[in-house]
Nucleic acid binder design. Sequence first.
DNA 1: CTAAGGACCTGTCGGC
DNA 2: TGCCGACAGGTCCTTA
Length: 270
Amino acid sequence: MPELPEVETSRRGIEPWILHTTITKVVVRDRRLRWPVAEGVERRLKGREVESVDRRAKYLLIRTSGGTIILHLGMTGSVFLVDQGAAAGIHDHLDFELDSGKILRFRDPRRFGSFHLSRKPLAHPLLAKLGPEPLDDEFDGDYLWRRSRGRKVSIKQFIMNAQVVVGVGNIYASESLFLAGINPKRAAGRTARHRYDALADAIKDILSRAIKAGGTTLRDFYGGDGEPGYFKQQLEVYDREGEHCRCCNTVIKAFVQGQRSTYYCKSCQT
DNA sequence: CTAAGGACCTGTCGGC
DNA sequence: TGCCGACAGGTCCTTA
């Protein structure tokens, strides 16, 4: 479900509700997430105040005096607030009860999401080797070009690799390649420097606009405030197979690449 | 080191 | 109406 804009939308949605509140109780209904939820997290978090709500890649980082909660939403995860006493559904795996009378609830039907508690979250094995944030200044065309030398993978799979750059998932990979005019099948190592300049700019542009629109809701994404994302209306190629390119009227094609669907316009993207 | 494929899960949708 | 396969916003792990 969530790529970087959706996680950032979730972060902004929950932050005002949980910052500087105290966790009075943690309820784990199902420990079977992507990795089993560690024993004892309930005790470690009880009575702790939420000191900050951050994001690194697609991870939400909720810092408390008892350690930092590292939450990943996987494909179908979401976080939202409900009033205390609200009935939990079958996929509501985690509750963080707050002294404000609200509950921060984690729901995840497919259970690809994860929950960890760490004193040093950025050094956690899952986060330690991640590439740069796409919206940071250190991420640019020169960086992408340098990292891509000698790589034979397609450029689409290259930018979806979190060790190269984080946060670019299946939707925004197709979208940014369209915006940069690059064919997704092109080999990463055989793509010219000036194209990487355009691609880095496109990634920053797409992600910024998607965050501004509250993310993309295709099926079931809702931000922490319960609102869907409105970026779907701005998608140029993703999920538009058989429809016409808004730029040149060519029919949008789809094919599978690395077991993920890719959408593109064969006329605009070379 | 890189690249490719499988694995983990549940829900939904289209076709027969 | 009911069943069955295909597919879905992620990413780690194993194998070659």
